[in-house]
Amino acid sequence: MEMIAERLEQILAHGALELRGDGRAGSGVVLTMQSIASTAIADPSLHVQEWPFFSSARKGAPTRGFLRLSRRPIEKASQVTHPHIAMMVDEGVSAFVDFAQGVPPGGIFVINTPLTPEAAAEKYRLTGRVYTIDGNTIAMQHLKQPLGNISLFALLCDILPGLSAEAGREHLEILLTKRRLPRPLIESNGNLFMASVGVARHADCVCGTTTDHHVSPFRGYGELAPGAQSRLRLSRTNLTSAYARTGFQLHFSDPDGLCNGCGHCIINCPENIISFRPDAATGVRVTGAEISRYCKLCNECIAVCPKKLFSEIPILHSQAV
């Protein structure tokens, strides 16, 4: 730990310490970055630059947050492509993006996962210092929601020079008050923060090769072949099943042939992915749903089915992602 702190302090003194966080809309990556920024800015010797990055995509879509810390004025204004610290707030995002892209060997990886650092390094092929914290479980106890962002903030308060747990909690509460959260919720967030201090695990791992997490240089869009553009732009390539709650999937079972063909699930499926076949007696008979690619797990079919044939089940961890 001391060695890491020393190294980070050196980076801070000579240039900018760069952080990149990957999460999904709603998983709180923006809040984590803002909390770090507002805690760090209280230290007059630190310069901070922080901004989130996302598109018009909605809840569940990938979002990014960038942060630069330095003891000198920060002149760079580009996005962070080679971060010193790469953070993953929600494991589900690994289906969309490579959170460790561009991190030089020996970098720091901060992951919200129930896995051990060694297992996480193995899974994501990481070389460097890997921190893991099971933020979702801790948050379930305090907020009844699987949000790992506050735990990651607590962990980063530990790692980053110039930040402390007390100041972190104070600034987190100020930020949440600004966001007009109700008072009891702010307190449980503070408790969640304190519960997350010091429970992270870390290990130095060498699981990646030099070709992993390579940033391919941008060479422009070039000439597209005729028709290539239309192929590029179909929504069918946008696999929104990764928007779903991490670790869960939709399940359909109708062993007794209870489906009465009412069609409520077909009408009310926002993605139109309920599969069915025509049936002489009932009109249509539902046979399941195409969950592997587009199901966002919105729970509408579970709610509208009068026979309760749909349910939400946890995915076994080996199958996840």
């Binding site: 779903a244 926002p270 139109n272 992915i273 690619r293």
Partner: peptide
């Protein structure tokens, strides 16, 4: 088509279908 980036459970998406 499926694959839009609307929120999960969006009524607009249901209406479009």
């Amino acid at each position: 088509q499926p694959g839009s980036t609307l929120c999960a459970g969006c009524m607009e998406s249901i209406a479009f279908q």
